[in-house]
Design a protein around this nucleic acid. Sequence first.
DNA 1: ACAACATATATGACGCGTCATTGAATGACA
DNA 2: TGTCATTCAATGACGCGTCATATATGTTGT
Lengths: 127, 127
Amino acid sequence: MATPQDRQLVEQWRSIQTTYFHTAGALERALASKFSIGLTEFEILDLVAESTDAACRMKQLGERTPMTQSAMSKVVDRLDKAGLISRQSCEDDRRSLFLELTDAGRALHREAAVEHRALLRENLGKD
Amino acid sequence: MATPQDRQLVEQWRSIQTTYFHTAGALERALASKFSIGLTEFEILDLVAESTDAACRMKQLGERTPMTQSAMSKVVDRLDKAGLISRQSCEDDRRSLFLELTDAGRALHREAAVEHRALLRENLGKD
DNA sequence: ACAACATATATGACGCGTCATTGAATGACA
DNA sequence: TGTCATTCAATGACGCGTCATATATGTTGT
């Protein structure tokens, strides 16, 4: 029943899990303690920050992250309440939302990104 | 500020996240609908099932998974309540717990493992 | 034998993600 | 134009994981 291929798959999966948990945990803790935001919050900031064009974004952001639509909605809500992002409704399709970093959001992202990259280097990099 | 190395790290990280989320999600849904257990429950069953020696395990299991001690405790508690695992206190160190699959647990694990491996193959395998 | 410390597991409060659903706007087409 | 289906986002109920602790047991040094 337990073929060698199966064992190898399981090993591979556990390795992904371990990397994911350790890295996500480290990011989570660092971002929370230094910037009072969660990892998912940072990730949305990061996506919005690197998005060049000015389309109706909420939706398209969903295509660039494995997050659920519902999760995104709540994260964005928190970011909005924290004054880091602004939601403005889109003219040509009033179901859609247009996201934009506030100045505070941009500033926080700039600092947090440094920490984020550093931790990725520590956790994923070939030291 | 955004060096090519940074971008590459971020890409690598997003790729891990995507794989993790998609695979974990698929496993979660399949195990829940077909066997009424969560992914973490299955993972504990899996670890206990493959554990050959009969040591006081709770602790050592913690070393083989990225799960928190607290998370493990709760998962094991659920498995116990579901009648899939039994906890017996360890003679030589009464702080420790000794875990063992029940017959029901062993049976469920056998079936669920097939599904689990199949989904890993789908999600991680080079199709 | 007694502190003081260390280790194994459990638990409660809390935050976040998920699912299912809702509300609103749009599209398609007779 | 009116209906029916589709799409975008928000929401409430719920379950799980995390942190900080609690509880019990063990160990060490004097």
